[in-house]
Amino acid sequence: MTTVDANGIVSGIESFGDSDAPLVLLAGAPTMLSWPDALCERLAAGGRRVVRYDLRDSGASTATDPQAPPYGLRDLAADAAALADTLGGGPAHLAGIGVGGMVAQVAVLDHPEAFSALTLVGTRAVAPGPPDDDLPDHDRATMNRLFARPMPDWTDREAVAEFAAAGAAILGDDPVTARTVAARIWDRTPGTAPAVHRANQMGMVFSRLDCTPRWRERLPEIDVPTLVVHGRRDPFFPVGNGEAIAREIPGARLLVLPEAATAIPDAAVGEVTEVMLGLG
């Protein structure tokens, strides 16, 4: 892991594969560890240079104030384009997961010259908050269980890891994997402030981020090969959100993972990798 300066921002990155191979850039949600190690390694073995990176206010990237971010969604999109340019090698295959998928959509719309393909995993085409009337919202019962829990001591690594594991079980993800990833995120979080740890673990900055103007109506402008991956059991962004994106981006392929919720499970890594490599 290292850092790269692009767009006046320091981005924490981790690279896999041959530095001369075509670039696949993975936007975190918000940390790079939202992307499974196994997926990065499989993509690299398939002849790609894979770089996963932290969004601002997470991991090793530029930190400001996650409770009052002095930037918006379009700034994060510009970061992605600048990072692709700085890393070099021509237009990149950009992938975003969760809220990182929002960044990826806007990046390809605002900076089409920077990207050659797009993968969107477990995301939606509208900003955090109430969705459009035709899109399914978070599953209410699941959210009630998820957010009714008392917050952990964010300065206690083990408490945070256990909190993440319990949350994953509620969402339908693997709690063992979630516990391990949460501990790794905790280790990479800059500083000790509870608000910063919470932002790194839960992506709270997006609830306070300026995501205007809307971009859903622009999805038909996307003209790069696009893959939309969504878990059939996702209660946070239910699968109807992925189906809508796939309908609205011309030629997009929809891959629904029948046993997945919000994360890419180990059992699906091979299939997701194969389809991503097929995009070019």
Rank of each mutant, 00 (worst) to 15 (best):
T3H: 00
D5W: 01
G8Y: 01
I9T: 15
I9F: 13
V10Y: 06
S19N: 11
A21F: 06
L23R: 13
V24R: 12
A27S: 12
A29Y: 03
D37T: 14
D37S: 07
L43W: 12
V50I: 02
R52I: 11
D54A: 06
L55N: 05
R56P: 02
R56G: 05
A60T: 01
A63G: 03
A63D: 02
A63N: 04
T64C: 10
D65H: 15
D65G: 13
Q67E: 13
P69D: 05
P70Y: 05
Y71T: 11
Y71N: 07
G72T: 08
L73G: 00
R74G: 14
R74C: 10
L76Y: 04
A78V: 04
A80I: 03
A81Q: 08
A82V: 03
A82Q: 01
T86S: 00
G89N: 03
G90V: 11
A92V: 03
L94F: 11
L94C: 12
I97P: 07
G98R: 15
V99D: 06
G101A: 15
V103H: 02
A104H: 13
Q105G: 13
V106Y: 06
A107T: 13
L109N: 08
D110E: 09
D110P: 02
D110Y: 01
H111T: 01
P112K: 02
E113D: 15
A114Q: 04
S116I: 01
G122R: 00
A127C: 02
P130A: 15
D133C: 00
D134V: 10
L135Y: 12
L135T: 08
L135Q: 09
R145D: 02
F147N: 10
W154G: 08
D156P: 13
D156I: 10
D156C: 09
D156A: 11
A159Y: 10
V160C: 12
A161K: 12
E162L: 03
E162Q: 08
A164T: 09
A164D: 06
A164H: 11
A165N: 01
A166F: 01
A166P: 02
A168C: 06
A169D: 12
G172K: 01
G172A: 10
D173S: 08
A178C: 12
A178F: 11
R179F: 03
R179Q: 04
T180E: 02
A182R: 07
R184W: 00
R188G: 01
P190H: 04
A193H: 14
A195H: 06
V196A: 14
H197I: 04
H197E: 06
M202F: 09
F206L: 13
D210E: 15
P213V: 03
E217M: 11
L219V: 08
L219N: 08
P220Y: 09
P220G: 10
E221M: 06
I222T: 05
I222A: 09
V224L: 02
L227Y: 00
V228N: 07
H230P: 08
P235E: 01
G240W: 03
N241V: 08
G242D: 01
A244I: 06
E248G: 07
L254V: 09
L257H: 09
E259Q: 12
A261H: 04
A261Q: 03
A263L: 13
A263I: 08
P265A: 07
D266V: 15
A268G: 09
G270E: 15
V272P: 10
T273I: 12
E274C: 13
V275F: 14
M276K: 04
L279E: 08
L279A: 08
